[in-house]
C-alpha cells in the first residue's frame, strides 16, 4: 500500500520536473550565454541535494515499476510480490550507494 502511494508521488514529481527540465534545456536555442547563466544558478549545494532527491525518486519509481510489471505478467509474480518489494528496496539502496558519494563529491568536492 505505501509502495503504491510512493509510486504515485514519485511519478507526479518526475512529471513536473520534466516540464521545467525541457523548458530550461530549450534555452540552448536562445544563446549559449542564456543557457550557461541559468544552468550556472543550479550549481550550488541546495540544487545538488535536489538532484540527489530527484535521482532517488526515479530509481525507486523505476525499480518498483518493474516490480509492478512482473506482478502483472509473470505467473509467479503475485506470489512473490512482497519478496520483490524487498528486492526493490535492496537494489534502491545499492544504486544510491553507488551514486551518492560520486554525485556529492562533484557537488561539494574541490576539484
Amino acid at each position: 500500500m505505501w509502495s503504491w502511494v510512493a509510486h504515485r508521488v514519485t511519478g507526479v514529481a518526475i512529471f513536473f520536473f520534466l516540464l521545467v527540465h525541457v523548458l530550461d534545456t530549450s534555452l540552448v536555442r536562445i544563446s549559449p550565454e542564456a543557457y550557461n547563466d541559468v544552468i550556472g544558478t543550479y550549481k550550488n549545494p541546495i540544487m545538488g541535494l535536489g538532484e540527489a532527491g530527484l535521482v532517488a525518486a526515479i530509481v525507486f519509481h523505476a525499480f518498483n515499476g518493474i516490480r509492478i510489471i512482473l506482478v502483472d505478467f509473470w505467473a509467479k509474480g503475485p506470489k512473490y510480490q512482497r519478496v520483490m518489494l524487498w528486492v526493490v528496496l535492496g537494489l534502491f539502496v545499492l544504486t544510491m550507494a553507488g551514486f551518492l558519494p560520486r554525485h556529492l563529491m562533484h557537488v561539494f568536492g574541490g576539484e
Binding site: 543557457y35 538532484e51 551514486f99 554525485h103
Partner: peptide, 11 residues
C-alpha cells in the same frame, strides 16, 4: 551526472 565531471561539466 556520473561520468566525467558530473553535473559540474554541464554547459
Amino acid at each position: 551526472l556520473v561520468a566525467g565531471e558530473g553535473v559540474k561539466a554541464i554547459d
